[in-house]
Amino acid sequence: MRKKTLAVTAVIVCIMAALIIGIIFTAPEEEGADISDTMQDAVLHENDKVDFLGLRVNPGFISALIVSGVLIIFAICVRVFAIPRFKLKPGKFQLFIETVVSFFDNIAATNSPHRNNFLGAYIFAAGVYIFVGTLFELIGLQWMSLAGESVTLGAPLADINAAIALGFLSYFVIMSGGIAANGLRGVGRTLKDFSLPISMSFRLFGALLSGMLVTELVYHYIALSFVLPVLVAVLFTLLHALIQTYVLVMLTSLFYGEVSEPRVVKDKKSKKAAVRAKVRPTTEVH
C-alpha cells in the first residue's frame, strides 16, 4: 500500500516537473504585450471588436447572445419536457426549478409587498442572466476579432454597454412600478434617486470587470499560472456571480417596493389633534 502511494506520488511529481520545464522552454518571447495594454483592452475593447451582422460590437455582446441562446433553449426544453411532468411531490430537477423561481418571487414579495408580479418576473430574468452570464466567463470560449486575432469571450456584463443597459433598464422598471402605483408622484419618487442607474450600472461593470482583470493579471505571469487560477478564476467568478445577482436583484426590489408603496393619506383632524397633544403639556406647565 505504501509502495503504491510512493509510486503514484513519484509519477505526479515527474509529470509536474516535465510540465514546468516544458513551459519554461517553450514560452514565446513577449512582443510588447504590456500588462497595461492587456488591461486596457479588457476594459475598453478597442482592439478586439468582433463582427455581428456587419456591426462592430464588443465581444461582450457575443457572450450576451450565447448566454441568452443557452437560456432560451434551456427554457424551451424545461417548458416542453419537464413542466408537463411536474408532480405534486417534486423530484430533484423540479425542486431546483421551483427553488429558483420561489427565491426571486419571495424577494419580490418581501421587498415590494404592494405590487410585485412584474417585479418578480423582471428580477427572475435579470438574476438568471447575471448569474449564468458571469459563470459563462469560466468556459473561456474563443471568438475571432475583426483584427483577425482570437479573443476570449468574457462575461456579458464585463462590457460596460451591457452593464449600462441593465442598470438603466432596472431604473426604468423601478420607475414603471412608481407610475403604476402612484402616477406622477411615483415618477417624482424615482427621479429623487437620479444617481441610481449610474450607480447600478457601474457597480455591475466594476464588480465583473475587477474579477476579469484579476484573472488577466494572474494569467499574464507564467509563475502565477499554477493552482492559483483555480482559486482566482473559479472562486472569484462564482462569488461574483452570486453576489452581483443578489445585489442587483435586491436593489431593484427595494427601490421598486419603495416607489410603489401607496401614499398614506393622513386625516387633517387627527393631524390637528396630534399637534394639540404635543402643545398641551407645555402650556400646562406654564
Partner: peptide
C-alpha cells in the same frame, strides 16, 4: 437581447 430573454423566460419558465 435582454428584453427578448426576459419575455421568453417569463412565458416559458417563470
Amino acid at each position: 437581447n435582454f428584453c427578448i430573454l426576459a419575455l421568453v423566460l417569463y412565458f416559458l419558465l417563470y
